[in-house]
Design a protein around this nucleic acid. Structure first.
Length: 217
DNA sequence: CTCCCGATAT
DNA sequence: ATATCAGGAG
């Protein structure tokens, strides 16, 4: 952290650089509509996007709506997602949320946090992803990457995803909020990795209090 | 807090 | 071999 920037100026510079590197960041999950996005995000818990995409490529060719999923059935869904971790619980949740979407939301994905979080397998983080990725709302989904990167960069000292989310929403300039969570995810996935962060080639190293420390925060 | 749980990177 | 991967429910 050699660059002499502090407080709001340092935070702004961090996101200015991330924005410069990836002007229009987007999720690496593959989907063709809001329902498929929701399912993909539920399946992505503790799994890689690549692994989820491999499974959903064949699944989403057949299943485009919650009604399609009910018609497919849990047994068949389980077969499609067997290569993804936690597949039994996820299959049950996806069937449950699909049933609820048909019964209570006319087969549509609700545009409201409380209605999203009422769906089985959907918590705050998943709801935040759908609200941001589909409707472009300035939410901050705190996943494993965002949590790690935010703490290493000293953007938050929170010890829960919710605390980190609140800190980030407070300190990130409005203009960057819409894309902030994708920037932090991409940075965490490819540069500020969990085990061996690439500080030597990191574009933020001069702004980062953890640069070169090789801990895991 | 524990459980869920296969694929991949290190 | 084992840490990690777009977490959530009980």
């Amino acid at each position: 952290m050699s660059t002499n920037l502090k407080g709001k100026a340092r935070v702004a510079e961090i996101f200015r650089r991330l924005a410069d590197a990836t002007p229009e960041p987007k999720t690496e999950l593959e989907f063709a509509n809001a329902y498929q996005l929701l399912v993909a995000v539920v399946l992505s818990a503790q799994a890689t996007d690549k692994g989820v995409n491999k499974a959903t490529r064949t699944l989403f060719a057949k299943v485009k709506t919650p009604a399609d999923m009910l018609a497919l059935g849990e047994e068949s869904l389980t077969e499609h997602i067997k290569t993804i971790g936690l597949f039994r619980a996820k299959a049950k949740n996806v069937m449950g949320l699909s049933r609820l979407l048909v019964q209570q939301h006319g087969g549509e994905v609700p545009h409201r946090r409380d209605q999203l979080e009422a769906l089985p397998g959907v918590g705050r983080k998943t709801a935040n992803v759908v609200l941001n990725c589909w409707w472009g709302e300035p939410t901050m989904a705190v996943d494993t990457h965002v949590y790690r990167v935010a703490k290493r960069l000293g953007l938050s000292t929170g010890t829960t995803p919710r605390a980190v989310e609140d800190d980030l929403l407070r300190i990130i300039p409005q203009t960057y909020l819409r894309h902030a969570h994708h920037w932090l995810i991409l940075h965490g996935r490819y540069t500020c990795t969990a085990r061996a962060p690439k500080c030597a080639t990191c574009p933020l190293s001069d702004l980062c209090p953890s640069a070169g420390k090789l801990s895991s925060n």
